[in-house]
Design a protein around this nucleic acid. Structure first.
Lengths: 341, 341
DNA sequence: TTGTATGCGTTATCAG
DNA sequence: CTGATAACGCATACAA
């Protein structure tokens, strides 16, 4: 009893029920118990019943650690994200979890707080745990990550960005192209002076790059820019707006995350700035909140959940030994036009 | 090389580098390598250097699965939440991860989708993995959960609610009392007809219960109520508001989550309903968005992150063998008054 | 400070 | 369909 130290001690000293104990109770060998658990169809119904009865009676809980060591399969997938607090990533994790759960795979979670060295340390730790697969965020990694993963021959899926030669597999989209599309969309609607609010991370930087390139190409001037450390706090985005206003009044603003866009929208409400009349706002990711605020936010939809599910399916396929049809899947993105632009 | 099937096969057939290999290369025994990894201060500087050189040269990655089996310590904590998509829970997970990371513990994540049987299955799976600790959401569990956990003598912390006799430890607050406080707060400000929008889960139900009890005791009539399956989608909250309006116009509404409160606020903007002039809105959890919307939301702050951190500290203490000072910690809650009421 | 012997609980292999 | 035996790779206990 965990709540009761003396009792607990007694139990801890009692050796826990093992497979052989079940085997003895059922009058079979321990390998038969193993099969009852892992491939029940290989046993006769009678034996199976005996074993299951013994398992229930002894309340046997198989030690999966021992199983992992023996079989060299941990039935564990690790996912590494910058932070779980940014809902774009929790959506991806949710999708991944949903894809894996029916197959009995468990999820190990690691957060880098947007620091590459942290990612490298996590990868090392997860490889030590002999995870069966790895899901990474982004395509830029600390040196050593790529080679460690490849040496371990662990299947990996990179997400949330695109490139030609992934470590192993990739399910993502082009952030640069998405940024370009945002600029083109705004330019097409006649907005000439543009601004950008986003995070400091690699992917946000790429969206900015695409946005800026297209703005220049389209004849708009320089893009007023504010970069935030946290990347998803709406209040900070509101403050960033003031900083941008300090050096001029853009006609439209693109935010690299809907939470930031929402923060900008709320700040406009406080400042009595009409949206989209005086300032058009465009978000990114198409989170639930984008469709809920007033006016509803135009956004770029990126299928965060789908990315997680696809990553899961790619890993499962690889683990089953099926060669994947495509190692790089570009899930694309789509402009969702609403009232804010 | 994961990207290259033939090579991969070759590597898979090559036996991976083990501790003995490092030991041989360094001219020591394997236990010395083990100590270099786990208790380096017990080795002479010279030996330590030799071993580390060998580790680097051979690119040795310790097999933590084998270590877990031998030491009966997995350095793994499992956390089970209804869903990671609800940011109140991702905050708690974040706090937990932050508390554990410096101590080398990894996090296993399980989602129940608000289903108790799912929780029971996850607990079973995690106990099989011999996690060193378990963090559960809420105090209501499927039958068998309590006894399984106690039999395994695995430290466990329940969160997000309160009760006298936890399975083992608890870091939470009283949802019933929080609901009462919300009602009292609104009644004190003269709002007489009250409404509630929340989820269908146990904790939301308790907030409603407290809210309703206090409303009755305070002389307000029946509480118009809408229960949502998803518990955190702002658009659904907006629709729920219409349903409530169908049977009358409350003067104030309490939402069991700030995301829902925000959705109600946005719907009011669309319907041109003044907040708080015509309808006062009160949220729950004090998420970042509460302080960002216009008008800013009055909310009940519950320290979601702190709950996770405390849960982590309680587990770490227990794992170090320190008897906890308190098995039940009530983290309380606080009304954060803003412009929406 | 370092080493030896042994066990952790399961699954793979091969045999029957 | 069932079983005997040998790994799996590391840590603990004890010894030197």
């Amino acid at each position: 009893m965990a709540a009761d130290p003396p009792t607990r001690k007694r139990i801890a000293e009692t050796r826990s029920v093992r497979m052989v104990d079940v085997a003895r109770a059922a009058g079979v060998s321990s390998i038969t118990v193993s099969r009852a658990l892992n491939s029940p169809d290989k046993l006769s119904p009678a034996t199976l019943r005996k074993v299951r009865t013994a398992i229930d009676r002894l309340r046997y809980v198989p030690n999966l650690t021992a199983g992992s060591l023996a079989s060299n399969r941990s039935h564990t997938i690790a996912v590494i994200v910058p932070t779980i607090s940014n809902s774009i990533f929790s959506e991806t994790i949710d999708g991944l979890a949903r894809a894996l759960a029916p197959h009995g795979y468990q999820l190990l979670l690691g957060q880098t707080q947007y620091r590459l060295e942290e990612e490298a340390a996590l990868v090392q730790a997860f490889l030590g745990r002999r995870v069966d697969g790895l899901v990474l965020t982004g395509v830029r990694h600390a040196r050593g990550v790529r080679s460690s993963v490849m040496r371990a021959a662990t299947p990996v899926v990179e997400t949330w960005d695109l490139r030609d030669r992934p470590i192993n597999m990739l399910a993502g989209f082009s952030n640069v192209a998405a940024g370009r599309t945002a600029a083109r969309y705004l330019l097409d609607r006649g907005y000439r002076s543009l601004a950008f609010i986003g995070g400091e991370d690699d992917r946000s930087a790429k969206r900015l790059q695409g946005f800026r390139d297209q703005a220049l190409a389209g004849g708009a001037g320089a893009v007023a820019t504010a970069l935030l450390p946290s990347a998803s706090n709406p209040a900070e985005a509101g403050q960033a707006l003031s900083r941008i206003f300090a050096s001029g009044r853009p006609r439209a603003i693109f935010c690299s995350n809907d939470m930031l866009a929402a923060g900008v929208l709320f700040e406009c409400a406080r400042l009595r700035i009409g949206v989209p009349g005086e300032l058009a706002i465009m978000g990114f990711a198409d989170l639930p909140i984008a469709a809920s605020v007033e006016p509803r936010l135009t956004s770029i939809q990126v299928r965060a959940t789908g990315m997680g599910m696809l990553a899961g399916q790619m890993l499962l396929g690889e683990l089953r030994g099926e060669p994947p049809r495509e190692r790089v899947v570009d899930l694309g993105y789509a402009v969702v036009e609403r009232a804010s632009t």
